[in-house]
Design a protein around this nucleic acid. Sequence first.
DNA 1: CGGGGTTCTTAATAATTCTTTATAATTGCG
DNA 2: CGCAATTATAAAGAATTATTAAGAACCCCG
Lengths: 238, 238
Amino acid sequence: MGKRILFVDDDASILLLVSDVLSDAGLTVRTAGSGEEALEIIQQEFFDLIVLDIMMKGISGLEVCARIRGQVECPILFLSAKDDARDIIRGLGLGADDYLTKPFVLEELVARIQAHLRRQERIAPQRPPQSILQIGEICLNPEEMTVSKAGNPVSLSTKEFELLAYLMRNAGQTLSRERIFRDVWKTDFGDLGTVAINIKNLRVKLDPDWSYIKTVWGSGYRFVTRSGYAEEGKHYEH
Amino acid sequence: MGKRILFVDDDASILLLVSDVLSDAGLTVRTAGSGEEALEIIQQEFFDLIVLDIMMKGISGLEVCARIRGQVECPILFLSAKDDARDIIRGLGLGADDYLTKPFVLEELVARIQAHLRRQERIAPQRPPQSILQIGEICLNPEEMTVSKAGNPVSLSTKEFELLAYLMRNAGQTLSRERIFRDVWKTDFGDLGTVAINIKNLRVKLDPDWSYIKTVWGSGYRFVTRSGYAEEGKHYEH
DNA sequence: CGGGGTTCTTAATAATTCTTTATAATTGCG
DNA sequence: CGCAATTATAAAGAATTATTAAGAACCCCG
């Protein structure tokens, strides 16, 4: 479900037009036709971003902003026909985050809204309480960057840790070297042998008998889903 | 000490004019005359916000943005003579946060910059410096400048104390050496090795097994958010 | 004004991690 | 069995970080 936007304007046609476009962009839109209505809605519902028209009869957008700033900490974007710099400065000074003058290009409004939402994500990412991963006797704690096997702590380097986390998150799937390298190293150029080496390091440190990290010949690697029984034994004898 | 702004434009007169105005507004301004210069500076220093002119000879502002977005998470504001909505949308799509067309009113630029900085504060506020910080069995009292571990007092030097307080206030985040140095030492020139040394001192005094202060290879340091049980053991053996 | 001690910084050295390169081992197939 | 493709291991080099040690700056106290 998309982010929630509150759009406040006393021009019904704009309200309709914009809410259509924003919906198409995957956002959930709630509209209000006046400052009074907006204040009421804001008390009751949560929004990720609020768009306020400044020139409205009754309570103006500026006043709405001044009243809710302090209670609500989502980004606020002003919309106004006045393009005088003084008004813009005053609007931003009230605690708003952006100011767009009418008439505006719809796509620019969408782009600006998404820029704000993106920033919100980047700064305060909703951390889905990074769950602890446990498969067999291997336990990985993303929060503390720690790994243990049968209760005993195992010390891994950063890359080894990231690789293990990636494998465990995608346990059961066979992952190609290309995909692993792209997702864990996050670069396009580089040597795929690097993956093999880190796989080996992991095996040496916490999987000497290859119980967890299997090699799928010609395809890639696979972390077993449940471990324990199906002891397969390593492929290589040395 | 004001927030640090990087201002990039190949027009020297604008560079001078704007940096004056921003300085008057209490901000610390660093300037770059080309995209190449900007990229180099960004690798070495930390900024709270970056202003990029789009039309520059050599590496354009758009390209600078594309390259640093991902590494740098501060707000980026574009400046351009082109007021075509398509350019604005493209700019914002690249991960920028705002777009202002030339010619612009200086005060509006200042207002927009401050709006972004204000929001940064609101979203990711440094925890109030006065409150007592406790993470795991480490307890820090800013009021009395004292630190204790599991109830036993630990004696730290001034800089060590400030560094620990900074780390604990920003627990959970990975903090680059540049950023730590700027925020704790509050000077621009100096050796980043100083940070490493004080980190080591802290570890010796109250974190001999690296349970709290983690090294994020290639990035910086990170104070764990919750700590305690899962004792890990250090990476280095000696 | 000093002395004595602590703290801070700089510089040099050691240790670790990551990547690349090279070599050995294994698998699949004829 | 032998060849080619694939994977594993080993070792070296570069980059990053940790540690050590020594000199400079600072502060407190007489």
